[in-house]
Design a protein around this nucleic acid. Sequence first.
RNA 1: GGGGCGAUGGCGGAAUUGGUAGACGCGUCGGUCUUAGGAACCGAUAGAGCAAUCUGUGAAGGUUCGAGUCCUUUUCGCCCUACCA
Length: 846
Amino acid sequence: MERYNFKLSESKWQDYWEKEKIFKSVVNKNKEKFYCLEMFPYPSGKIHMGHVRNYTIGDVLSRFKTLKGFNVLHPMGWDSFGMPAENAARQNNLNPKDWTEKNIDVMKSQLKMLGLSIDWDREISTCSPEYYKHQQKIFLDLYDKGLVYRKESYVNWDPVDKTVLANEQVIDGKGWRSGAVVERKKLNQWFFKISYFSEDLLNDLNKLNQWPDKVKTMQKNWIGKSFGCEIDFKIEGSKDIKSIKCYTTRPDTLFGFSFLALSVDHPCSKYYEKNNDFIKFKKECSKTGTTEESIAQATKIGFKTELEAINPLDNESKVPVYFANFVLMDYGFGAVFGCPAHDQRDFDFAKKYNLQIKTVVKPDNESDDYQVQKEAFAGAGVIINSKFLNGLSAPQNSIDETIKILEERKLGKKKTNYRLKDWGISRQRYWGCPIPIAYDVNNNVIKIPEKNLPVTLPESIDLDTNGNPLDAQTEWKEVVIDGKKCKRETDTLDTFVDSSWYYLRFCSAKNTNKAFDIEDIDYWMPVDQYIGGIEHAILHLLYSRFFMRAISLNNKETSFKEPFEGLFTQGMVCHQTYKDNNNNWVYPEDVFSEDGKNYYQNKDPSKKVIVGPSESMSKSKKNTVDPEKIIKLYGADSVRLFILSDSPPEKDIQWSDSGISASFKFLQKLWALNEKIVSNKKEFSEFDKDLEKFTNQIIKKVTDDLDRFGFNVVIASIYKIYTFYNKQTNKSDWGSNFFENYIKILKIINPIIPHFSNECLERLNQPVKNLQWPSANEKYLDEEIVNIVTQINGKKRKVFQIDKSIDKESLIEKIKNDDQMKKYINNKKIIKTIYIENKLINFIIR
RNA sequence: GGGGCGAUGGCGGAAUUGGUAGACGCGUCGGUCUUAGGAACCGAUAGAGCAAUCUGUGAAGGUUCGAGUCCUUUUCGCCCUACCA
């Protein structure tokens, strides 16, 4: 018997799928649709195990739904704009376009090796003008709707390279390339008004009942709705500044007011621009703030002004005004009222500058002379030392009451605040979608007319210039619109924009006139199942939700607002880490072990390797395994089988050599079984009820488990199938119903190991086209003989195999009189009998 | 500081609604076959005990006839987020 030749088989079926266009999807209103989408990859060079896991999950689901009769849309594309291309191009003296296209070719061939059921006719690439011309149109539409605007905003500026840095390019406050201390620089930039939908985005999370709660909570926190009030503080000591607005969630602690703090970027800072001490202070503030650690540990510093703020509820009380490093300009009004007794940050600040700490809330169990000591008290309690507010229960009552009073006296008003900020979309980069805007000689914003779209990137470009390479393209920049000389916008769009609407484009991927066809999206949208990494829980998913709302705003044709009905976030792929004696990471493929305990380097077996903990695969730790190599060694089906088998898909999985080789060996066993069945010449006449029962029960279980993403248990079932069928074929009579049941089995393993399943079906002269998912026959799902667990006082004592037809009374009588049970009951009195049908009997004795 | 998730054999993990804890795989041990095996096949495998049996789902309590599952407290681990007023 020949072993299973996965190389021949897998390439054969992949060719067949491609030639016959098996996965081509067309709108068919008579058939229920299923849109299965995995987050499309960035073409970084090669696929990694994370992709393998992501796309295997999506593929199994797509194939399963297809077998179940759905019209499945399962597309794939490339998130192909972005910085890595620019960096790689600069390093290797290439064009980003060429680098990207080469990577796409490689990765596409690798995805095909996995045998994914993708409709490649719908392939899209976000860096292609065919894609981004529609994006530019959408940008202009949103501009017309008032959802796009321009304002001054800060960027990270590298003063040596003279370039804008992305956050991830700033390491410890320094530019990643130059090492220069990064400065903050103000630039005019474009924004999407995502905050317009804050409330809607928050509320509609409730409707997403096929989303993980975790992701919804993360988005909820990100939107960060809070209830509070804005208060106007009168200011003394300046002829320019009359009052300052603050936002607070705790107006009820107003009598604890002991300073007012402003962000260094607060509009009032303009009056201090020439003050040398203030300039120094501002510099000091910008030093801390890039790494998370420094933020957490940053001490609170302030710059005292000559200004004084008056407590609106107590005109006698005047407090100093500071600029402080812990006040953020882009939340609230960039100004806070300091109440040290009941806010830890304010407390720290007050301690440092010897400001008054006035206790105005006491815990319920404390007396009225309670005083805050070592730290701020932010808990619930009762208002004290606050004149007419005294005695109110804090926080809820006291807040409501204070707001009422402030509103009556016209000193402030109730306000809901959101943490969610508008989305800055300008990037000072070459390799992104050009913003379809120009400016006339007076710097007015001029839209590029639709007929002139797309605004394409210039192909020959010098990436070694300082700053944005597009800025240096003087010829490209010049454009005439309606006879007027204009200069193009040289910023490009954030690549998150590209991925915020690609799910729509897949529905009409070939339409050159429009971004999408209403008829197409009416049928295909929303995405029924979206699958990807948890790292996109907030930004990408929130931006996509925003885009759907923005496109649908004042648009009667697209009525829905949620692009993704179901969301699944898969876990990461982990691998053991290895280091040599010099603390350098070592690749798994350069490591060997004879006993599984001591590890050595392949190149030099005298060198020991230290085994570290298993961590998520990353290039920096060199604990990666190359999928292409693994596929070539074991075959795609073995890889698919293993990547799904060891852990539930939402959790992390450990990649291991023993695991993948176990999957490989298992397929060989399954193949041997199939060959044994193929070569059987005997006819069987006896109907085998056990075989029928086993098959139907396992079909039921696999169907249910696939429906709930229980891939790892599905694979456990496949192992059980092998054990059962192997025993069955060792019998002299396999059963007259053997063949039809076995065919069903080959169908239910098809979504997971499709090449293998096809090959087995073909060996048995079975069709492989238009397979249908077998349904379990209810008749065989029930057992006639059931296990009855008997307990004495809740403790398991004996298990009886009982015919289901027996009635309750005789069953209890029978068990009571069982010799072993009698021994346990031991002449004691049965005071209660719990009976759960077909499951359990519990005697309570005393 | 805030939020979330989790803790089950040597390991990864099973266990619809509370109802036989440890499915399935890895590893380990024993056996068969083989010139050999790091191949294949068969069997065993939570712990203790010769056994009947007892103990076991991070810890402590509670609800219940019955808890891995529900409630309270607690410890540890992981993830996200971060001066949000």
